[in-house]
Design a protein around this nucleic acid. Structure first.
Lengths: 149, 149
DNA sequence: ATGAAATATTGTGTATATCAAATATCGATA
DNA sequence: TATCGATATTTGATATACACAATATTTCAT
């Protein structure tokens, strides 16, 4: 039963971790006066990437039509620009504006900084283990999702 | 720069982990023909707990009025029962039905099983350290959230 | 007894999301 | 090259998820 209790302790940990991560996202979105959807959408961009509607929708698990409207908001707020893909005029290529790029960089920096702070509270000798454990966790989760879909 | 790269690896991990956990929740909710809100609400119950509206709302970060309606759904689907608290008739005590209890048990079991699988991929001598590291991560995250609110 | 605080519910407005239909484009083929 | 089927985006209609304010009931302290 040792195995079992370790597993359930781990289960409780990931459960709480999830809740806290979500809260953290809500907080950061508010901080930058973005809706959560807009925030998550921007977070998908590398600073010089150019994505189309459908790709973003798939990565975010949203319908393309929803994305159109989220993008409407981001265009209005001048974070992104739309332009027709010259290679395939059906595609709308979505690019970050200068304002968008600097926000994305800022967000990435903030995000990493949070984890830096967090790591400062943890003994450096445990850092590698933590990364390993989380990697395993992620792999197992992905495996589980693939299995069940 | 070691510190920095560890932090950004951790940042990427928690980011992906969050996305996958959310997907898992969506999947499990659908599987049992529950809305996500209903699913998360049920997950809060220990099998023989009895909670009131406000407590659940607080734990879920939702308004009490929202909870009333989520509970309406769960009552209609026969997972929970409402009864007036005899000690304080303002309270509605919410209990799991037999059907509700068995679902909650099943969900908990599934959840622990996933983590058992994960632990099988990790050397048992490291399990305790892993739990410790994850606990630290959670504590650090909670501290960060408290600081910024 | 009475007024203030706590609790759940109901009414209403807004944000979030989906689905179906319309439009434009592409690519293949007859 | 004219046409048909597939694909991408957008628009309009609609459903769902949520919060806030008002209401009703109950408790509790005075």
């Amino acid at each position: 039963m040792y195995k079992n209790s370790t597993a359930s302790r781990l289960a409780n940990l990931t459960f709480s971790l999830l809740a806290n991560c979500q809260e953290k996202e809500v907080h950061l979105a508010k901080l930058h006066r973005l809706t959560q959807a807009e925030f998550r959408c921007l977070r998908l961009f590398g600073t010089d990437e150019s994505l189309n509607n459908k790709t973003i929708a798939e990565r975010m698990n949203l319908s393309p039509s929803r994305l159109t409207r989220i993008n409407d908001g981001l265009v209005k707020k001048r974070y992104i620009r739309r332009e027709i893909d010259p290679n395939d005029r059906r595609n709308m290529r979505v690019n970050l504006s200068k304002k968008g790029k600097s926000l994305v960089q800022q967000l990435n920096k903030d995000y990493v900084d949070i984890h830096k702070e967090i790591l400062q509270d943890i003994n450096p000798s445990q850092h590698e283990q933590l990364i390993m454990a989380m990697t395993h966790l992620l792999e197992a989760l992905e495996k589980w999702l693939k299995k069940t879909e």
